[in-house]
Design a protein around this nucleic acid. Sequence first.
DNA 1: GCTTTACAAAATCGCGATCGTTGTCTTACA
DNA 2: TGTAAGACAACGATCGCGATTTTGTAAAGC
Lengths: 203, 203
Amino acid sequence: MASARPTYQSAAKQLLRTSLLESARQLLRDRSWPEITMSQLASAAGVSRQTLYNEFGSRTGFVQAYVLYDADRILTVVEEAIASAGGDPAATIDIAFRRFLEIMEVDPLAVSVLSGTDEDGLLALVTTRGGPVLAYAAHRLGEAIGAMWPQAATEDVALLARELVRLALSHAMLPGGSPDEAAARIAALLTPFAERALGVDPS
Amino acid sequence: MASARPTYQSAAKQLLRTSLLESARQLLRDRSWPEITMSQLASAAGVSRQTLYNEFGSRTGFVQAYVLYDADRILTVVEEAIASAGGDPAATIDIAFRRFLEIMEVDPLAVSVLSGTDEDGLLALVTTRGGPVLAYAAHRLGEAIGAMWPQAATEDVALLARELVRLALSHAMLPGGSPDEAAARIAALLTPFAERALGVDPS
DNA sequence: GCTTTACAAAATCGCGATCGTTGTCTTACA
DNA sequence: TGTAAGACAACGATCGCGATTTTGTAAAGC
């Protein structure tokens, strides 16, 4: 299977990265980020510390990559939820938001940030310095929604995606009711915009 | 009932509180919160340190009160902006959001939180532990909107107010474009919901 | 390309000592 | 009654200092 798109090198590199990132995910289940050393991380993944540095550059470089990796993970699930909604605006927003909040409740990084006292500066990484994550998530979400509603203006879809991400992060950091309740409210709030963007006749 | 006007005692107490809080606002213009001591605060307001403690209990008690005071200040301006909009849904949301973001750009506490490295835990006070502020702001905003749109269901107004506050805080912490641009986008996003709640015929 | 070993720079920790601050109390005053 | 002022213990920063750990980089070996 050498004819596949990714070369062996890139595939191996990808395997290395996910192995490291997944090990970090495991370690984050019972220790907070500042309690995890690069040595522990390397040995948990079965590679040398040097390899870890070659791949991610520095400690902060790794944690930034991990945030994106975590976002990627979550977005994949949310995209599946969107695809399963069958195109209905209200159902799409509701299920996507609900799935997101449900995941965040058990996400190692999220619970670590929310439960701890933020002795590390991790909270800022998704708020005041959360530009990269927000942009990435908004883009991915916009693609997923745009694929499902091709008749909607890309401008409207991008707008909906961006603010949806902001609301999602806000509700993840400070829950307003259960995921079910929150998702229902957000869906009720944003469905009129979505329907108008889709040209649905509000009979 | 006691009296229509506040008693001398309550008025004096109120004067004392606002004097202290306003002094803190001044001090926050060139120092961050952890750099301000209770002694400095008391003498800046011209009262004894003991009086400060009698009124606010503790240092954290004061900063929490200050956050509410600051929110109150900002909300007053936003309420005026809402009243000036004349009831039109799009204009109301647009001007309220824009005024809020403009204020936050020069608010001493806000710039202190956004520029600093959050060595104090102040960022958490408007995110993961921001329940009280969010509830207070959502309530005030709901009242203001409800007074302008009496025909809308209180449920819809409360929903709009709550999520509007979340979006506002998100945009204040991590700006997405200028206040004008952000406000225009939020207005475009939420106007359909507001119009539907108002029973406006979308001709 | 990964591992091992080595190494300098930087961060962390333990541990007193010190100092400033917090929070409380008591007394004096209007 | 409520504020000012002084004194006070408790607590938390801060500092010095050595010891240790961790970060980040480099070399050599497989």
